[in-house]
């Protein structure tokens, strides 16, 4: 159970990796927008990752993660054939399926992973998909082919202009929403990526009055609604991301509070990471890869 059956490195520094995990139950059940929690071993923490794709027939769940700290670095150091102590899911609520007409998916960096599974479901439901995907630089882009295959229109950008359109995803979002002002065919914007990017995706869409969903990566422990670690303020109310979300109406989310809460353990995360790097005998420059 929970065996890694495939692994691919998308980017080396920072490390962005894809893995396929054997988890037939989750593969059968998981819907767009849901996530899993993994735990590496007995001393490991519980870490949430979005389901990027599933293969129900083969019983496989695809995850894509960026190596930002000890747990994701140690995960990235595992190889095909290794097993995870726990792989729990599917968690959270699936993306609400509806006929939105056209859905504008704005995906930044690692956010391309969750966006893929959501766009796939919305497409299967009969919606038209426009994708805007971007990253800091070319190396950090992945799954352009898969996103292209399920999008009716696609725009690829990089902040530094190393590939595709030179500029931020919100620039393209703005242009598309302006064009849409007359036709009004875009019924939903989905913005997923780093918190600051999601904040601006929402700021951009707000004047156009188009409903915007974001998927919030808050710190979690149990991910079953038991602890409240993942709480955020949405529309003035406290919500638990793991059971009420992870998707929320982005125009209602208090992003500033959420970003502050994400920094609670910065000091400890640094300690854990440095200790890990020392034990793994690496300098950390390669993004946690031991080879």
């Amino acid at each position: 159970m929970n065996r890694i059956v495939a692994k691919e490195e998308f980017s080396r520094n920072p490390g962005v990796k894809m893995m396929q995990i054997e988890a037939p139950g989750i593969a059968r059940k998981a819907k767009g927008g849901q996530f899993v929690v993994f735990r590496l071993d007995e001393t490991g923490e519980r870490v949430p990752l979005t389901v990027a794709d599933t293969d129900p027939e083969k019983g496989l769940v695809t995850i894509i993660f960026q190596e930002v700290g000890k747990s994701t670095m140690a995960l990235g150091a595992l190889e095909v054939g290794d097993c995870l102590a726990d792989f729990i899911g599917p968690l959270g609520r699936p993306t609400h399926m509806d006929d939105y007409g056209t859905v504008l998916c704005v995906a930044g960096g690692i956010g391309i992973a969750p966006t893929h599974n959501i766009a796939k479901a919305l497409k299967a439901h009969g919606n038209r998909i426009i994708t805007v995907m971007g990253a800091r630089t070319k190396e950090l882009l992945f799954w352009e082919d898969k996103m292209r295959a399920l999008s009716d229109e696609i725009y690829v950008c990089t902040d530094d202009g190393s590939y595709g359109i030179h500029g931020l995803v919100t620039k393209v979002e703005q242009e598309l929403l302006e064009k849409n002002r007359e036709s009004g065919e875009i019924g939903l914007v989905i913005g997923i990526g780093p918190p600051i990017m999601m904040k601006f995706v929402c700021k951009t869409s707000e004047p156009f009055g188009v409903k915007t969903l974001v998927s919030l990566p808050t710190i979690m422990v149990d991910a079953t609604g038991m602890c409240g670690a993942c709480r955020v303020t949405v529309g003035g109310e406290t919500k638990f991301v793991c059971v009420d979300g992870p998707e929320f109406d982005g125009h209602q989310v208090d992003f500033d509070e959420m970003m502050k809460r994400q920094a609670i353990y910065l000091e400890q995360e640094k300690v854990a990471r440095e200790l890990y790097e020392k034990e793994a005998g690496c300098c950390g420059e390669c993004g946690g890869d031991r080879q």
Binding site: L40, T43, G44, E45, R46, K70, S71, V221, D222, M226, C227, G228, A229, Y265, Q268, E269, V271, A272, L275
Partner: peptide
């Protein structure tokens, strides 16, 4: 209290960094 106690008991945060949960 659930989070505080779960971190400490179930996740053994009192033994951080030997255990990963802070």
């Amino acid at each position: 209290a659930n989070e505080y106690l779960t971190r400490s008991n179930l996740m053994k945060a009192y033994r951080f960094p030997e255990y990963d949960t802070p």
